[in-house]
Design a binder for these strands. Sequence first.
DNA 1: CTCTATGCAAAAACTTTGCAGGGAT
DNA 2: ATCCCTGCAAAGTTTTTGCATAGAG
Lengths: 122, 122
Amino acid sequence: MQIQNIIEKTNISLTSARRELLEILIEENKPISYEDIKDKLSMDKATFYRNISKFQEIDIVNCFESNDKKRYYEVQNTPHSHFICNKCNSIECLKDIQYEKLEGYKIIDIIYKGICKNCMSS
Amino acid sequence: MQIQNIIEKTNISLTSARRELLEILIEENKPISYEDIKDKLSMDKATFYRNISKFQEIDIVNCFESNDKKRYYEVQNTPHSHFICNKCNSIECLKDIQYEKLEGYKIIDIIYKGICKNCMSS
DNA sequence: CTCTATGCAAAAACTTTGCAGGGAT
DNA sequence: ATCCCTGCAAAGTTTTTGCATAGAG
């Protein structure tokens, strides 16, 4: 997903802070916390939180909490699931597995919690 | 699941605070936040948080964050999935749908995020 | 020019920790 | 007697808000 597409499908104004944040989210291409990227950001944390909220409102960013009790954010790009391991706390993107359907519901994100492959076999 | 079973399968000491907390969790039978139950609790919040952490450590309680940005806790009872609606913020237990499998992983909880049936049809 | 976005600082919300007293074994 | 649990108060962490200024359209 390109920034251009994002902007076209919504009507938020693309300030330089928002562009920067989107670029980082797109480049990372995996769920990231504020702490993960704060050093890369030139904006204030208030601006980060205000904009990441806005992105969630207009449905271009998803958010979930991981086991480290931090919130992770990700651009709504190719739909895929996430696996959070209760043992090693890793977050894994399951891009190859088929996206499930639930009759009558619209699924935007799936978060599995449990024990990951690595931890299971060790 | 009865308290007796829980205690038998672990070896934590069953204090009256823990018994109270477990009873409430079992009775509610759905994910609840600290705020939801604080008025019912006779223990201090520190004790609540310490015990709910302990319950998670010994794998008798699951936790996830909902869209209201609060953590919800639930006894690991019959395995089932959860649907969190991005629109109405409701949490729904999907008890009737089949629990998925992921080769090599152990799944303890599944959280779907999206738009629920109600919101889709209105 | 008007309306929205930003930075800074302060506040809020939620959770954790230190410590001294209590309870259980 | 020892070890774990609890309440209370204080501290910690993360996120949000108020306000004055800056920037976009």
